[in-house]
Design a protein around this nucleic acid. Structure first.
Lengths: 150, 150
DNA sequence: GCTTGTTAGTTACAAAATCAACTATTATCC
DNA sequence: GGATAATAGTTGATTTTGTAACTAACAAGC
């Protein structure tokens, strides 16, 4: 990719422009995991994220998930409906505040979650293995910083 | 974001899962630059990418751009048409191989490119400024590695 | 208690991305 | 040289996303 097919007539280095570079790295590094959740379970990106949040935290509301994952509420709403239709989660009204719905994985949802979690752990280890342990830790720290997650 | 509102009942660390983390960082770090090209010039993401490739490399074909930017040819095709309609680029048939079109920025396109390039440079410097020079260089190297750009 | 404002979540419509099929041209190989 | 395959690029149908407006429930001020 760093070939010389094209001679630059300019001094802007697109391949090192952070927003571009981050997008390329994010897309490339999502590909293999995407195959796991898409091809094997027919899940969309927002759907596995909702699934994982519930798998990890047990019980949450749509709003909580949206905040944690920085995802718009309409996306969450549609992902929740899909997961409900597939019987991967169930909803229940909060009796104290009847606007709120609590979401929780069904046993089927937990099974899918555990499988995907295993794949995710293996895959993350593979990616991190491209670097030394220190470098990988630094990378995560820098990414959290860029993502405003600190 | 690293608060304790939810007690984890599980050991998967989503906030450090590289594909997730990379996506979050990529989205967050694209936001401000996106405002520049979207609000000010009405460009879409693929459109600024095509514009930048032509600004940097002078003359390319749609296929070349697609390969460099890892972008599907239908996206490129539509972005090229939009940019042509706005008179930011012009096309010309290759006389040797008449399937091929050469794309080149018009003076208007070059003006937009130079403005956006300036904004991009400033913004990149701001992002890189979150880290030491060594760290930033390492970050770029690691991202290129993850993106398969090495 | 009644207006006004907020919040959780959904829905409707427009914009954009995806995937497959298509045209036109060139390359391969018998 | 003629059939077959490959390549550059486009188009159309379907899916997914984004934006705004919406419902229903709660909160605050007076």
């Amino acid at each position: 990719m760093t070939n010389d097919k094209f001679r630059k007539n300019d001094d802007f280095d697109l391949q090192n422009f952070l927003p571009f570079l981050l997008n390329q790295a994010a897309e490339e590094s999502s590909l293999e995991f995407q195959r796991a959740y898409k091809d094997r379970y027919g899940l969309l990106r927002t759907e596995w994220r909702v699934l994982f949040h519930l798998g990890i935290f047990g019980e949450m509301t749509a709003k909580d998930i949206g905040e944690r994952a920085k995802t718009h509420k309409t996306k969450i709403s549609r992902a929740v409906r899909k997961l409900e239709q597939r019987r991967f989660l169930k909803r229940s009204r909060d009796e104290g505040d009847r606007r709120v719905e609590w979401l929780v994985l069904t046993p089927a949802g937990q099974t899918v979650y555990r499988e995907l979690r295993g794949i995710a752990q293996q895959y993350d280890a593979r990616l991190a293995g491209l670097f030394s342990a220190d470098e990988a830790a630094l990378l995560r720290r820098m990414l959290r910083r860029l993502a405003g997650m600190d």
